[in-house]
Design a protein around this nucleic acid. Structure first.
Lengths: 198, 198
DNA sequence: ACAATATTGACCGACGGTCGGTCAAAAAAG
DNA sequence: CTTTTTTGACCGACCGTCGGTCAATATTGT
């Protein structure tokens, strides 16, 4: 038998090599030929590892999201912050300067997902959602323990995610100032809904 | 001087003629040649009235949204409904059976917008936002007048929009049951935030 | 008749994706 | 240890499609 490569690893390597290309050009102006050139393989080879262009992009995006969720986990573990501060950090992180490019990537990902994503994309997004909700859950649970929040605050978790997603969409269109909207939102939550009554 | 056609009107006519085509094929599988054929003009003529394919799609989508907003306006004008009922109707309408296809189109529109929209997209989306917020404003104003809502309810208008947009995204990925989520959301708003205290 | 404008579809270049063929490494045979 | 065979990774010329262009033609008002 001839050589057998680790397909999964090679996918990762190809994706890694053209991370910058995606950030620079965006999905629309990113061609498979370019990817092949930068990855140092023939165009045909690309299609040995990916079913189509979207899958390539998707693999690159996975790299970013994994990194992002690691960063989030660190914040949640930080015990010097109130749950309100954590929530604000959680919601703002993707809009921060150092995640500027990743935000664009995430928007591009949403773009693919919205235009009839493959089953792989859906699965991935499920994991994403579970990851984010998990972080949120921990934040809010801590808030409840600290008496910053009422018990029913947990019910808000999906709503917070929807709000956040919607905000990402509007920011993509230059129609929203993220920090301002998030502050207003968190104020509503903490002042009107779930602030522990004393 | 020769004839001068009403460009705006012709745009509308071309868009109208291929409404069905868009609903049937979706944006990705809709070709300019098809549009030209159905509209009964040459492909070159299309480009006399539209700068690019996206613009054609937006024009068609505009038709849908206009229709949609008309439907919404009717509900707002109906004085037999409480503002809570109106809000629920407002948020659910796009997910209803008879707007099934339009929802898909709107999701595809968001997809295009997210992957680096032109200035035309942004302008269009601005109008959309203003339209929706206008309807929301009326609903909530009525609620305040009827003492169903507190004064500060108006502050929630952008938040409601973000939530709604986020929900549309998640529904596209089969990750949310619209009615259920909306009910929960409206409950939160009316029970916890802005219900008039008696 | 003439000028101005509207219309057209053949044409173009770019792109995503395919396919027959090449080649080096590994396995089998001698 | 050498030769032969098999395997599958790799390639890039090629294909069909599509968005967009443009020179030629048709239509209209004066």
């Amino acid at each position: 038998m001839a050589i057998v490569v680790d397909k999964k690893e090679k996918r990762r390597l190809i994706a890694l090599s053209c991370k910058g290309l995606l950030l620079e050009h965006g999905i629309k102006n990113l061609t498979v030929s370019q990817i092949a050139k930068v990855a140092g393989v023939g165009k045909g080879t690309i299609y040995e590892y990916f079913a189509n262009k979207d899958e390539i992009v998707f693999e690159i995006i996975t790299l970013f999201i994994d990194q992002f969720q690691e960063d989030l986990a660190k914040v949640v573990a930080n015990d010097t912050l109130t749950s309100r501060e954590k929530l604000e950090y959680f919601m703002l992180l993707v809009f921060s300067r150092n995640y500027n490019k990743e935000l664009i990537i995430y928007q591009e990902f949403l773009s693919i997902a919205l235009s009839g994503g493959s089953s792989g994309i859906v699965e991935f997004r499920n994991n994403c959602r579970d990851g984010f909700e998990g972080v949120l859950y921990k934040i809010i649970e801590q808030g409840i323990k600290n008496k910053e929040l009422q018990q029913n605050a947990k019910l808000l978790i999906p709503m917070i995610r929807y709000f956040h997603t919607g905000l990402i969409v509007d920011v993509a269109l230059g129609q929203a100032e993220a920090k301002e909207e998030i502050d207003k939102f968190i104020n509503s939550i903490f002042n009107d809904i779930v602030l522990q009554e004393e």
